[in-house]
């Protein structure tokens, strides 16, 4: 057993885990943050994507002990209180989800994708960047649409912020 300590969704948490415990299981079972899902055994499907120190990571690919000392954001911590994150809002507005199982991972991946492309995204880039996230319901059509819409909203927001600062 090992002791892990990390900051999850702004809250310091710690726990004793078996060495083999994956980050996703620590989040789901120790912290009851069940929004992060497990859809495969081979780090292919991306239902478990969270942000570790600001970067999208498949939490089934990382041991809980490896994440010790890190800052983790899960789908539960993405919204600002009652205000949805723009990516969450875009998924709802554009019908970017059906059964909802892949959705948390999709949203966390998309958020990171948009962060890495502050000047905006095009369809081909979004499709290529979604390589690590599988959805069986939507045919990706509306997921792509939602990410492009969110990217637009967020780059507008950051530009107007920058303008104000200038």
């Amino acid at each position: 057993m090992s002791e892990v300590t990390l900051v999850v969704n702004g809250r310091k948490v710690s726990g004793a885990v078996e060495d083999r415990t994956l980050l996703v299981h620590f989040l789901r079972e120790n912290l009851n943050l069940t929004g992060t899902h497990v859809g495969c055994d081979t780090s292919q499907c991306g239902a478990c994507v969270v942000h570790v120190d600001g970067k999208a990571v498949k939490s089934c690919t990382m041991l809980a002990v490896q994440a010790s000392g890190s800052t983790v954001t899960t789908i539960e911590g993405l919204a600002n209180g009652a205000d949805l994150h723009p990516v969450q809002a875009a998924f709802k507005e554009n019908h970017g989800l059906q059964c909802g199982f892949c959705t948390p991972g999709m949203i966390m991946t998309a958020t990171d994708m948009i962060r890495r492309h502050p000047d905006g995204l095009d369809e081909a880039t979004v499709r290529a960047e979604l390589e690590g996230n599988i959805c069986r319901c939507t045919g990706y059509h509306n997921i792509v649409k939602a990410i492009l819409a969110a990217s637009k909203t967020m780059s507008k927001a950051s530009k107007s912020k920058a303008n104000k600062a200038a």
Binding site: R28, N32, L33, T34, G35, T36, H37, V38, T74, I75, E76, L78, A79, L84, Q88, F91, K92, E93, H95, L97, G100, F101, T103, P104, I107
Partner: peptide, 21 residues
């Protein structure tokens, strides 16, 4: 109409069998 059920899924509040304790 945008879906009523979406909010729980986009905020990680969906409840699937594996989430049941």
């Amino acid at each position: 109409v945008a879906r009523k059920e979406d909010k729980r899924f986009i905020t990680g509040s969906g409840r699937y069998v594996d989430d049941m304790v």
